[in-house]
Simulated assay, not measured.
Amino acid sequence: MSACLLGKKVRYDGRALPVADQIIEQWHSERRIVSVCPEVEAGMSIPRQPAEIFEGNGQSVINGEADVIEKEGANVTAEFLAGASVALDLCLKFNINVAVLAESSPSCGSSAIYDGSFSGKKVPGMGVTAALLRQHGIRVFNQHEIAEANQALLATHGD
Rank of each mutant, 00 (worst) to 15 (best):
A102K: 15
A3T: 10
V36I: 15
L88M: 05
I113V: 11
C108V: 07
Q59Y: 11
S45W: 01
E70T: 10
S105C: 09
K71G: 00
F141S: 04
A16F: 03
E145Y: 13
A102V: 14
Q26W: 14
L101A: 11
P124W: 04
L133E: 03
G43N: 10
E30P: 03
S107Y: 06
M126N: 07
E79Q: 06
E70F: 02
I138S: 03
N142P: 13
E52K: 06
R32T: 09
R32M: 11
S119A: 11
I24Q: 01
A16S: 14
R32W: 09
A102S: 14
G64T: 06
I24T: 05
G43H: 11
F94Q: 13
V68T: 00
P106G: 00
A102N: 13
P18R: 04
D115W: 14
L90R: 15
Q49M: 08
I138A: 00
M44H: 01
G83T: 03
K8H: 10
A131V: 13
V10N: 00
A152R: 08
I96E: 03
T129K: 01
S35K: 07
A155C: 09
I138L: 02
I33H: 01
N57T: 12
N150R: 06
D67Y: 02
K121I: 14
E145W: 14
A66K: 01
S117R: 14
L90E: 11
H136K: 13
G137N: 12
S119N: 12
